[in-house]
């Protein structure tokens, strides 16, 4: 058995420079960052149009006036996101499993799932939202809500499930066939092997790319504004229309950034942790 730690450190030395110079590289990084961003700020603030830009995009007064309303509207983005996320996780898993079922009999199932993922990954999200948001309520289906919130969520679920299904499928395929053989050899049925042996391993492996897709989903909740609901982006448009000052757009952007950064760092942390674990287990 090889020891995992030397392998890990050897690798990071190759990729990231020798460890003994850690303090020095931190200093260089800090100085370089300050110089780089200092120059960038100087360049922008000395541009001829800067006073004009500052007035229309960075107005503190406008920010104070519009921010509470935008924050309130942003609650709708979060609701859209959370509701869509739950359905995406379940529906995409179903699609991925459909595509992974072996056997000639299940060809139509695989075909259906493949066609679905192809279709919804190729049509722009904004079009799906438009078509469903304006088209579906016109059908006046009984028992189906006609609210833009409902159809907005539906559109997001349809589109994102196609992406997430592919992520799940990659996870399923990454589990070595010998795991399935081991499960089946013990007398477990195909669905049991999938449920108890393959899916738990597959899902664990794809958590980081899943979170990555959800960062995309958080942003795309703004597209639902196009069919009516007043979420943060729509609210900022309203504010801008009233004042001809663009600061509310920046306020909205700030909110999305605040929501995304923790998720992005969490994803990075998960990836790093998985990597450590794989290096630790890879010694065998």
């Amino acid at each position: 058995m090889t020891e995992p730690t030397p392998l890990g450190s050897r690798r990071s030395r190759i990729l990231g420079g020798p460890r003994s110079e850690g303090a020095r590289s931190a200093l260089i990084a800090a100085v370089s960052t300050i110089v780089f961003f200092g120059l960038a700020v100087l360049l922008v603030t000395n541009a001829p149009g800067w006073p004009e830009v500052k007035r229309s995009f960075f107005s503190a007064e406008q920010f104070r006036d519009s921010f509470p309303d935008i924050v309130e509207a942003f609650g709708l983005n979060i609701r859209l996101f959370l509701v869509a996320e739950v359905f995406i996780l379940a529906f995409a898993l179903l699609l991925a499993v459909m595509r992974s079922v072996p056997g000639a009999v299940f060809f139509p199932l695989r075909l259906l799932a493949t066609a679905y993922t192809d279709l919804f990954r190729s049509v722009p999200t904004v079009l799906v939202i438009y078509i469903l948001g304006f088209g579906a309520p016109t059908l006046q289906l009984s028992g189906v809500p006609s609210s833009p919130f409902f159809w907005g969520v539906t559109a997001l679920v349809l589109v994102y499930s196609a992406y997430v299904a592919e992520v799940y499928r990659a996870g399923i395929q990454s589990v070595h066939p010998s795991q399935e053989a081991a499960a089946r050899s013990l007398g477990l049925s195909q669905p049991q092997a999938l449920r108890f042996v393959i899916l738990p391993q597959a899902v664990r492996r794809v958590v980081p790319p899943l979170l990555n897709d959800f960062i995309g989903l958080q942003k795309d909740t703004a597209l639902v504004a196009l069919i009516g609901p007043v979420e943060a982006f729509r609210q900022s448009q309203i504010e801008v229309a009233g004042s001809f000052n663009y600061t509310p757009y920046l306020a909205t952007a700030l909110l999305f950034i605040l929501l995304t950064i923790p998720m992005a760092r969490f994803t990075d942390w998960l990836i790093a942790r998985n990597r450590r674990r794989e290096l630790a287990a890879g010694g065998r």
Binding site: S178, A182, A183, L186, G187, F196, Q201, R204, A281
Partner: peptide, 30 residues
């Protein structure tokens, strides 16, 4: 297959389960 046990060269234990769960999975589910 429940009546025929097979052991593989590469062990093929289920890495996401404890030893006890590895051993009890099939008796419980199958």
């Amino acid at each position: 297959r429940r009546r025929i046990g097979i052991v593989f060269q590469a062990f093929n234990l289920f890495p996401h389960m404890s030893v006890l769960r590895n051993v009890t999975l099939a008796p419980r589910r199958a």
